[in-house]
Write a protein that binds this DNA or RNA. Structure first.
Lengths: 111, 111
DNA sequence: GCCTACATATAGCCAGCCTACATGTAGGCT
DNA sequence: AGCCTACATGTAGGCTGGCTATATGTAGGC
């Protein structure tokens, strides 16, 4: 998958994957891979900065935890994040409708 | 529409709008607006460089014409462009399936 | 001791869409 | 004449955000 097309959709992906349950960065990457059937291999250099940005904005909150001797920063959706996710979903629908509509509009000129 | 999300889809949009008939830059912008129901207002600074890039790659070819005293550069799809458009369409389908799938996968964890 | 998986983090690169500006014609209104 | 809007093309430079490359450290298998 060409990385360019992820532009502007990372936030939606991250918020969406955290909707069900809180996860730490590494697990988020794995979750994205699983849910996309292996199509999404988002590098750590994309995910970690994005998570921090989303926390700074207020859509996510995090706590440190130590599991099996390893430190994890576990992220969860805030109320604002949950609301934002709704917005991201409707923006996604509009986006696909608009672009998809143009791509499909290859029939004979109307009227 | 957040400009970021157009990233990586401009080529598909331009090729698609030229599939039916050759058009000049200004008309392409209008066609995108019409076909998107007004949602797509792509600025000239995006379209003209993109058209030149697509011509350089070989997906488009152009000729100058004078209509009503105004000069137009009319672009048309090449065979390579037509082939590329097919690729862009299937890439679009895959893209929407992958992202859309993740955004919708908010149910309880499977099995 | 070495390698892989797990886990987080940052500096700097780069593609490509956008803003702002430059240039010019045609035609309407005053 | 002067001004404005629509038509029409083009470029320089900026910005943004995802990616590459790298650094750091633990746990466990071979």
């Amino acid at each position: 998958m060409n990385p360019d097309v992820l532009r502007g959709h990372m936030d939606a992906l991250l918020l969406s994957v955290l909707e069900r349950e809180p996860l730490h960065g590494y697990a988020i990457i794995e979750a994205l891979q699983e849910r996309s059937g292996g199509a999404l291999n988002v590098p750590t250099g994309t995910v970690y900065p994005a998570l921090r940005r989303l926390e700074r904005i207020g859509y996510l909150a995090s706590e440190w935890a130590t599991v099996g001797g390893r430190k994890r920063r576990t992220y969860r959706l805030t109320d604002a994040g949950r609301k934002q996710l709704e917005g991201e979903r409707s923006a996604w629908r509009e986006f696909t409708n608009v672009i998809g509509g143009v791509l499909r509009a290859n029939a004979v000129a109307p009227g």
